[in-house]
Design a protein around this nucleic acid. Structure first.
Lengths: 139, 139
DNA sequence: CAGGATCCCAACTGATACTG
DNA sequence: CAGTATCAGTTGGGATCCTG
């Protein structure tokens, strides 16, 4: 079956028909509230490694709970490793895996598109919103 | 200020500090449940153009409401246009804009990474899950 | 045909309190 | 320090009904 963005589809007389598939999983995770922040922060850190409290400090507004959940998800996906040191006080180091490191440059290609088109997107939003607020209907 | 993925950050003694920023908006939208499906379907269609009912048929499981909302958001961002034909019965054509068309190849670069790493991600998840279910604690 | 309005449930997120 | 547990607010999404 043919694919687009890793998603199988069948072509019919009235157009293609898609079926749900894998890449959405990754994009959904990156699209959540904190994941990219965590990945970006680790990619900047020396050795691509930071401890819990450093991550928390580096991401303004993240709660302890959400940082933990975000890190668990990334660990589960094999994008980072968690190393626990049973000292007093305890210390936990989070480091990007090889796969985690390889993701950032790939993502960077797409965020480059976002950055260069962001002004257009904001302009389109402003235009759309100003069109909608007066009495003008969308027809 | 330095940036990563379009996100400004400041380097401190204990690591970088990020501030929330624009690219997340786009990734969050692409990460939602239907947006990429709609974009992909339009990118496959002749003239990058489909009518409402074609989109609905092409995306299994999408509700009328969610298709409408997804299309509105994409229209607002300037990624597609909506053209209403006041016939009986009415007809509405959705077509990718130039910016919308330019997004797909850029995204394709990243989804290529996803596809080639997907087996590793699934393996990591399976390993993580099987580690967790026995009595073994994560420490 | 296309989509607006409404209701409802599930999931995500945040705040707070507690622990090894 | 680095969590876990619990509770509450908010949002996303689906089902259904109705209309130009």
């Amino acid at each position: 079956m043919a694919e687009i963005h890793g998603r199988p589809y069948a072509m019919t007389g009235r157009g293609p028909v898609l079926t749900p598939c894998a890449p959405h999983d990754v994009l959904a995770r990156l699209g959540d509230k904190w994941t990219i922040l965590v990945m970006s922060l680790l990619s900047l850190a020396p050795g691509n490694q930071l401890r819990f409290s450093d991550l928390r400090r580096g991401i303004r507004g993240i709660s302890q709970r959400m940082l933990t959940l975000t890190l668990r998800n990334l660990e589960r996906d094999g994008l980072l490793t968690r190393h626990y040191f049973p000292e007093v006080p305890p210390r936990v180091e989070y480091a990007l895996t090889e796969m985690g490191r390889s993701m950032l440059p790939a993502l960077e290609g797409f965020t480059a598109w976002i950055r260069s088109n962001w002004p257009s997107i904001e302009a389109a939003r402003a235009a759309y919103d100003s069109r909608g607020e007066p009495g003008a209907d969308g027809t």
